[in-house]
Design a protein around this nucleic acid. Structure first.
Lengths: 336, 336
DNA sequence: AATCCATATATAATCGTTTATATAACCCTC
DNA sequence: GAGGGTTATATAAACGATTATATATGGATT
């Protein structure tokens, strides 16, 4: 390995000079500079990251931990969009993105958190599912929670208006004349997923506000993000369609694919027999049969704000925690 | 910051002892070990990554650079699947995944390559588009090329049987009675994308083998992965459907979405008016109208083998370059 | 009791940078 | 030609770990 010392010797100067040439610091005589640059080229010198980091402590690694491929063979595009936004914003600020996959299993989170608990990263952005406060408080980097609100652990978080937009979607169905409205959502016994819990609340609130009965059989909970969300959607459709619902809100677009598959098999029609609105917005929804109505969350903004939160936290570790809630929007197509 | 020295002092031992306790090396007396562990806990000591890396040189960072979100607002699920496979395999081998996004722009590649050219990573896996050999040869980490074969730069690469599977798809169409077969594919003037070039060759070969004429107007090239692949597919459909083709192979599933959109607008029927086979295999294709026939590439295996290639290259830098070609498969649904 | 050996720990060098401090060389001024 | 101020560079001390080498201790052997 070629070191700065080698470059210095080859150029007949000290490492001080080499370092200053590389980092463009103090004024170095033009000819000295040229000698150094030539030595660097000749020896194909590359700086040593570990040496630099040890000395400067300028850590520019951020870990991102997302459930990017849970529940679907081809990945969760919602989180892919967020990942892009995170990357763009981190890159803009000269940070590297160290990626981890989470899978809604707290054990995995423990491994992911521990893996980087050695001053390798300057902070983490994640959708965490873990509630062990002692463990979390012993980590030596700041954490930004994304997509849902961690109940007990104090940290910055960014999320969307899950409750309100679900209420709005149900209200749209009611206004359109549907009265027997079902809901298919993640098993909210999982205390780590406040977003899914809030969606259910939005559904219930809308019914209540419109004096519609809340029927237990109209609500079907699925194991979201654990096995196969499409298959879960199929099974859920099978159950819920037999209860006589004429409209359904689904917490997740992959399960909506399963719903479509069941509907096709059962020779039901969307929206004539059952109307449908799902969370998250992808291109294929325009060519599904019929095109699917969805709730779009502002993924680009989520990613951007998450990075902003983290960088400002790194900059000022003791400032008060921030909670950002971004608005989603309802996109109506032919499934309603 | 709490250092090993602090721990040593607090426990009344030397850093040698602390280091050995942490790394479970030489035998340390039980009580000494306990003292050290307690000091670590009490001071909440975390090892310093830079110090460790500088001393041990055991670099466990691998950079992955993929066009994860090019050409589609919601991401390219093909590469997401590969990303998962890469992560799983890297994780299994105790490597961290440092992520970069490429975008089919050589300038972006130069930035991505340079960013890590400071001994921060032990190697890179990427779908590169760059042909500057001098630049590439000056990087100080090994590169595994994924998805296509770099023409001039000598390195390991892994890809799929693009030519053969495309030929097979066209053969299927011919055998099914289609004779006027079109092809929509990436603008293969881009010399960096051998995979797209090979697909076109497979298409042409199949025609030739069956003594069918190769008509220029049956071939439509699109700017894949640069702007909006769906919109490109729509425009391509518009053109190619007017030439009288009765079947089309599309080099990419997102453009197939655009194709469907055009077909719907033009009130054409698939497959009665035009049959369709596209590359890459996603869940939504089962509920598109009609379900889409596709070519499935073995993404999990691609990712796994890519990591294998890289780790064995790191292990043995001077071994001969390997080229792996994996077989794809044809999945026939109702669009044919 | 001297020697040897094994065990348990300490000392100090090292990894490759950056940077505080020192110094050498030059020019200016009186 | 001594003192003072620049300018350009060198020296050496960090940063926080690992580890080759040294040393102290205690028991076994002679």
């Amino acid at each position: 390995m070629v070191t700065m010392k080698d470059v210095a010797k080859h150029a007949g100067v000290s490492t001080y000079t080499v370092s200053n040439v590389i980092n463009n610091l103090s004024y170095i005589k033009k000819e000295t500079k040229e000698k150094v640059l030539e030595a660097i080229k000749e020896l194909n010198y590359k700086p040593n990251y570990a040496g630099q980091l040890l000395r400067t402590k300028d850590n520019r690694n951020i870990s991102v931990s997302l459930p990017l491929l849970t529940g679907s063979r081809t990945g969760n595009a919602f989180f892919n969009q967020i990942l892009l936004a995170l990357y763009v914003e981190l890159n803009k600020n000269n940070y590297n993105l160290v990626l981890s996959f989470s899978d809604n299993n707290p054990q995995t989170d423990i491994l992911n958190f521990s893996k980087y608990n050695n001053n390798m990263i300057a902070g983490m952005i994640c959708t965490f599912t873990l509630a062990d406060i002692d463990f979390l408080n012993n980590l030596n980097y700041p954490i930004i929670a994304l997509d849902h609100k961690p109940e007990e652990f104090a940290c910055d978080y960014i999320s969307t208006d899950n409750k309100q937009i679900t209420q709005q979607a149900v209200q749209y169905l009611i206004t359109s004349g549907y009265t027997k409205i079902g809901y298919i959502g993640a098993n909210y016994s999982s205390e780590y997923q406040s977003n899914h819990f809030e969606r259910l609340q939005g559904y219930l609130d809308a019914l209540e506000k419109n004096h519609l009965p809340q029927k237990a059989e109209y609500i079907h909970s699925i194991n979201l993000g654990l096995n196969d969300d499409v298959a879960e959607g199929y099974r859920a459709a099978e159950c819920i369609c037999k209860t006589g619902v004429n409209a359904v809100v689904i917490d997740n677009a992959y399960s909506a694919i399963g719903f479509y598959k069941y509907v096709k098999k059962a020779k039901l029609r969307i929206p004539e027999d059952v109307a449908l609105i799902a969370f998250d917005d992808y291109e294929w929804q325009e060519i599904s049969d019929p095109p699917l109505s969805v709730i779009r969350q502002p993924t680009a903004e989520i990613g951007q704000k998450a990075v902003e939160l983290l960088l400002s936290r790194i900059d000022n570790p003791d400032k008060e925690y921030e909670h950002i809630i971004l608005p989603s929007s309802l996109i109506i197509r032919d499934s309603v």
